[in-house]
């Protein structure tokens, strides 16, 4: 392989990595918002909503993401819903990982001592104020390590997109492998890209956790 080829190969993989990161960010955003909502419903919600959140979690965590992706991407058009592939991935993946995020947030919220609620109430805070000013900030630090866990799994699972015809890092690697017949190096390079993405995310999480040491 010449230097120029290496460079263009690297650039090609980097473009795939950008798509992977983009899909990951979208998925994680959806998963975080919806997951927090599920956690709040399960902890503080009224009967039926609490039950619905619990059932949602059981179902979402009991089905493979690949099945959900294939199922929704190929059946949505029949329902008259025509969404671009990336959006289906962000939504379906986001809703899927929301079930895991819900468990992360539920554990962290429940870990904030009851006495913090007492302290806020005694100062005249309403429930929502107390939650946003006192409980959520403390729970967010507690949730960073398990949150990162889910994020890393989500990043790597964006590779499933290539199984339904999408293009991202793994698809880019496969093309290069097939074109150059250098299968192993191609996939090693793909693996290295994933590692760099995940390592970077871990470092960011560690940094945030350190900055929040008082929380």
């Amino acid at each position: 392989m010449t230097g120029a080829m290496l460079l263009s190969t690297g650039q090609y993989l980097a473009r795939g990595a950008v798509v992977t990161v983009g899909l990951s960010l979208g998925m994680i955003t959806v998963a975080t918002c919806f997951g927090l909502m599920l956690a709040v419903l399960r902890l503080y919600g009224v009967g039926p909503l609490r039950l619905a959140a619990a059932v949602y979690g059981l179902i979402a965590r009991g089905v493979p993401l690949l099945v959900l992706l294939i199922g929704s991407y190929f059946s949505l058009p029949y329902l008259g819903i025509d969404l671009p592939l990336w959006l289906v991935v962000v939504l379906v993946g986001g809703l899927y990982f929301a079930a895991y995020m819900a468990e992360v947030f539920r554990a962290a919220l429940a870990a904030v001592p009851r006495t913090q609620w007492d302290a806020g109430r005694a100062l005249g805070m309403r429930r929502l104020q107390l939650f946003t000013i006192v409980i959520l900030p403390q729970a967010s630090r507690l949730s960073i390590p398990p949150f990162l866990n889910v994020v890393l799994v989500a990043v790597k699972n964006t590779s499933l997109v290539s199984a339904i015809g999408g293009w991202e890092l793994v698809a880019a690697g496969r093309e290069i492998g097939e074109r150059t017949m250098e299968i192993l190096p191609a996939y090693l390079a793909v693996a290295a890209f994933y590692f760099v993405i995940c390592f970077t995310l871990s470092q960011i999480a560690r940094h945030i956790e350190k900055k929040m040491r008082h929380v």
């Binding site: 006495t115 913090q116 007492d118 302290a119 005694a122 100062l123 005249g124 630090r141 929040m212 008082h214």
Partner: peptide, 17 residues
Amino acid sequence: LRAQVGMVFQHYNLFPH
């Protein structure tokens, strides 16, 4: 009403963050 009544607890219950 609670806002008009101060309370101090055995375990302080300050906001650690």
